[in-house]
């Protein structure tokens, strides 16, 4: 909290208050009150996807570099942490996590190098190379998965010192802590000169260059930070959420899913990443309940998956057309409508 309090911003302290309340509820109430199903199947994946979305948002929402290869960095994080744990015994878990993020960042920077010359979807296409290459390498080389024939890895029990995080609630708390800390650090980065450089490069690259923003360093920083965050999300995905993963789980659809989270939630908004992740996690559950209730047996898993595709795809289009700033903009509007007295007068 000291970190946040010392940020010099002109945002109202109400925001800090809300974050504080959120943290208290997330730590104090949820782990006690939530069922294992809620924690395991809803909240933990929500947190992990939100962190991945925060990572992609740094790159795409703030720095304006579109990536279709997020899942590759999830995979790198997961497999790096697995191998570090396996091959460097005695390394504390948190060091594992940070190193795994670092490895993802390094690979992200390598695949970010073309961004100096490529823009828009040329760059997007080049990030697909990361997607396919990483997935292939993890399947092909048995070393990564300790010679499991299909590349499957089983996560170890999370343990920091003598404290282990084994139950659903414990794994949730573990994920929550990492996600909150990293999100707050990201927030600070975005409000620093480096964060402004991201937006400058996104909004007008040439002007940024003329002003003296170091383009290559700024873009690579965005790729590095983004891949770091996504890599750590990958560790959580493998260690805290699924606990058994295979390369096929980090396919292009996963990359798209993360991209969709930030489009639906809100580009260039960290809160949007969380709302978007919540939506992506909750929506299929809702859809299957509603579908089953309305259509009964016809609504099998195949139909569910297809209708999910249709609705998500349609939502992407609708948001891009009607509210490019995503759910978070709707949220803010609803919020200020609820308490019109507090709405600031529009300056001239």
């Amino acid at each position: 909290m000291a970190l946040l309090a010392s940020t010099k911003t002109n945002r109202p302290t109400a925001e800090t208050l809300w974050i504080g309340i959120g943290i208290v509820v997330a730590y104090g109430v949820v782990p006690l009150a939530g069922s294992d199903y809620l924690l395991d199947a809803v909240l933990t994946p929500f947190l992990v996807l939100a962190l991945a979305a925060v990572g992609l948002n740094v790159l795409t929402g703030y720095a304006g570099q579109v990536s279709l290869g997020s899942a590759a960095f999830l995979a790198v994080g997961a497999y790096a942490a697995y191998n570090l744990h396996l091959r460097v015994p005695g390394l504390p878990l948190l060091v594992d996590v940070v190193l795994a993020g670092g490895i993802a960042a390094a690979i992200g920077i390598v695949f970010g190098l073309p961004s100096l010359r490529l823009r828009g979807f040329y760059l997007a296409v080049s990030t697909l190379a990361a997607q396919f290459f990483v997935q292939w390498a993890l399947t092909k080389f048995g070393w990564f998965s300790n010679d499991n024939p299909s590349g499957v890895i089983d996560a170890p029990v999370l343990r920091i010192g003598s404290v282990s995080f084994a139950t659903a609630a414990e794994r949730y708390v573990f994920s929550l802590t990492i996600v909150v800390v990293l999100t707050l650090l990201t927030l600070r980065l975005l409000r620093s000169q480096s964060g402004r450089n991201f937006i400058a490069v996104r909004d007008h690259e040439i002007a940024a260059k003329v002003i003296g923003v170091p383009l290559l360093r700024t873009k690579l920083l965005a790729f590095g930070i983004s891949s770091f965050l996504i890599g750590v999300a990958g560790v959580l995905w493998a260690f805290a959420y699924l606990r058994t993963v295979e390369p096929a789980g980090f396919n292009l659809d996963r990359s798209f899913q993360i991209l969709f989270i930030i489009i639906i939630g809100g580009l260039a908004s960290l809160r949007g990443s969380f709302i978007g992740a919540a939506f992506i996690v909750v929506f299929p559950l809702l859809l299957s309940r509603i579908g089953a209730a309305v259509l009964g047996r016809v609504f099998d898993s195949g139909v569910l998956e297809m209708s999910q595709h249709i609705v998500i795809g349609a939502l992407i289009i609708v948001f891009l057309i009607a509210e490019p700033r995503g759910l978070i903009a709707l949220w803010d509007r609803a919020w200020s409508a609820l308490r019109p007295a507090r709405r600031p007068a529009i300056p001239t």
């Binding site: 798209f256 969709f260 489009i263 297809m306 209708s307 999910q308 595709h309 249709i310 998500i312 795809g313 349609a314 939502l315 992407i316 289009i317 891009l320």
Partner: peptide
């Protein structure tokens, strides 16, 4: 998004 809709 469109590709998801059409595929679905």
């Amino acid at each position: 998004g469109l590709s998801y809709v059409i595929e679905g």
